[in-house]
Write a protein that binds this DNA or RNA. Structure first.
Lengths: 157, 157
DNA sequence: GGGGGCGGCGCAATATTATTGCGTGGGAGG
DNA sequence: CCTCCCACGCAATAATATTGCGCCGCCCCC
């Protein structure tokens, strides 16, 4: 399957903003019968277009007040070190996102921690403990204006 | 309400990884009856600890292959310009996350676009069109290793 | 232009799940 | 030791999801 129409778009849009909407309501919103709607949703899931469903938690209320972006530089580049670093970074719970990036840094990671002490432990004990990493530059989120908004489906043809 | 026990933790953890799990199954996973479990979930929602539910879409499959992080610098700082800038940034669909940050930049935004042409339009026509913004430095995600992983609940007391 | 085949739809029956009232037990505080 | 209160489980009811089925419209091939 590879073709998606405006109804699929509408379904995705809706599910992005309310991932737990009842299928009955979703169907009504996109002007389909519940059964047809459900079949489309299942197909979108099967196709991998819908990667999953997540409850979004409030970081501040959880006590994970501090969001930090950390740019990492790697000393020697090789396929093996890259893979190993990725594996380690991925396994650190505090790291909620991680990208290989262009520019002066090699990795850009986003971490959620409780406070500066936790941040220090994360950086010193976990990240800088990775041998190949030679430099880290941290940027603190003072305030989050917008978090993981819906993807801009309207921008697609 | 302000106290959360390990059962709540387990519920949140589970809902983070599967936001659409049936209450029956969630209840079994956390060793509660469905009714008790549902009541806890409702309470967590009511409390705002659960901010919402989202379907997570596959950016690549959607054709939004390009993730860009853009650091913005603001010329004159004032309460009004800050508020106005935030309002504009928030309203741009391609911008999926936006933070006020420490360091050499003032804002860090994450954008999802289809390709370089779309990126250029976003940057030139929308972001740099904001008067107070004097500089933008872009970092491209070459590959995403980990996306919006679950928050590290295990790290909380 | 006229079949024929196919895909997707709605309907309806059935299975699952969510939701609410109610009675009970266990722990905290007096 | 007693009492109160909270959170639980149970059970009945309401809502929702799921599947089979027949139908309709579109596209392709003749």
């Amino acid at each position: 399957m590879a073709a998606y129409d405006s109804t699929d778009r509408a379904i995705l849009d809706r599910l992005q903003s309310d991932g737990r909407i009842a299928n009955v309501d979703l169907a009504e919103a996109v002007a389909l019968s519940p059964s047809a709607c459900l079949r489309r949703v299942r197909a979108l899931e099967q196709d991998g277009l819908i990667a999953g469903y997540r409850a979004e938690l409030d970081r501040a209320r959880l006590g994970l007040d501090l969001t930090v972006f950390i740019e990492l530089r790697v000393g020697e580049h090789s396929r093996e070190t890259a893979a190993r670093i990725e594996a380690v970074l991925t396994g650190i719970p505090e790291i909620v996102a991680c990208h290989v990036v262009s520019g002066s840094a090699d990795f850009l990671v986003e971490a959620a921690v409780a406070n500066l002490a936790a941040y220090e432990r994360l950086l010193i004990d976990q990240i800088l403990a990775i041998p190949a990493i030679v430099d880290a530059r941290s940027t603190f989120a003072i305030r989050t204006v917008k978090t993981r908004g819906p993807l801009p489906l309207a921008q697609l043809r």
